[in-house]
Simulated assay, not measured.
Amino acid sequence: MTSACSTTKKIWVSAILAIVIIGALTAFAYTSEQNALRDATLQGMKSTVSVMATQVNASDIAGLRPGDEMSPAYLSVARHLETMRSMDDHILNAYILKVNPDKTATFLVDDLYPLDPQGSAKIGEVSTAPDQAEIFAALSGPTASKQPYTTKYGSFMSAYAPIDDSVNDSSGNTVAVLAIDMSAKDYNDATSKGGLIILSGIISMIIAVGAIFFGTTGRRDTEKKAE
């Protein structure tokens, strides 16, 4: 009786250890996969916005003032942004922000404005995205949101890059920041593809625990027959 109890206890201890070990390995693999997908997605967004920013001529936005949304100069820049971002189906919106001395950001051009004036930002509208630190940092180089955020326009992940004062002969002065948005849903879909890892971990746990129980039971039956 004592031997049987001891054996049962060992079986349960072995099963629990197997579950803990496999669970830990699965969690590590899942986290690593999530981080890799997140880094790849954000790096792709930063690369895209960086290239797009080099194609924006600072002189085209220098004279824009509130009320110029339907002016030829504004429409030309908006169409240019729309053409560039339409090359990537994941980009919903491209827009230019002016960073003010108090580190707030205001809109200069929203590429959606010509098509949807009511659902787009006007010149001078203050950005309510929580990415103020990232937008300010983008004056020096490409940045991206730390996590999805929500404004009155929707839920997004964004990337930012500096627009220099001259495309061909830069003096190193950044006059504005170009931003692109990916929907939070697309971002979550792109960075949440670790379901197979979790499923594999669960299956591995079942197999391991089953092997422990059935293996031990089979051994005990064999020992009894031998007696």
Rank of each mutant, 00 (worst) to 15 (best):
M1L: 08
M1C: 07
S6C: 09
T8M: 10
T8L: 12
K10P: 06
V13P: 01
S14Q: 10
A18W: 04
I19M: 14
I22P: 00
F28H: 05
T31R: 13
T31G: 07
S32I: 04
E33P: 03
Q34G: 06
L42C: 02
M45K: 04
S47Q: 14
M52W: 08
M52N: 01
V56H: 02
A58R: 05
S59I: 12
A62C: 04
E69T: 06
E69L: 11
S71D: 08
T83C: 06
R85K: 15
M87W: 08
N93Q: 01
P101R: 11
K103A: 09
K103Q: 11
K103N: 13
T106H: 00
D110P: 00
D116Y: 11
Q118Y: 10
Q118M: 15
K122S: 15
T128Q: 12
A129D: 02
A133M: 08
A133K: 11
I135C: 07
I135W: 01
F136R: 02
P142Y: 00
Y149M: 02
S155W: 09
A159S: 07
A159L: 03
Y160Q: 07
A161E: 02
P162G: 04
P162T: 04
S166M: 07
V167Y: 06
S171R: 12
G172Y: 10
G172C: 09
G172A: 10
D181K: 00
M182C: 02
S183A: 08
A184I: 00
A184S: 11
A184E: 01
D189F: 10
A190K: 04
S192R: 10
S192D: 09
G195Q: 13
L199T: 08
G201F: 14
I202S: 03
I202K: 04
I206A: 15
V209Y: 06
V209T: 09
G210V: 12
F213I: 14
F213M: 05
G215C: 13
G215P: 13
T216Q: 09
G218F: 10
R219K: 15
T222Y: 09
A226P: 06
A226Q: 11
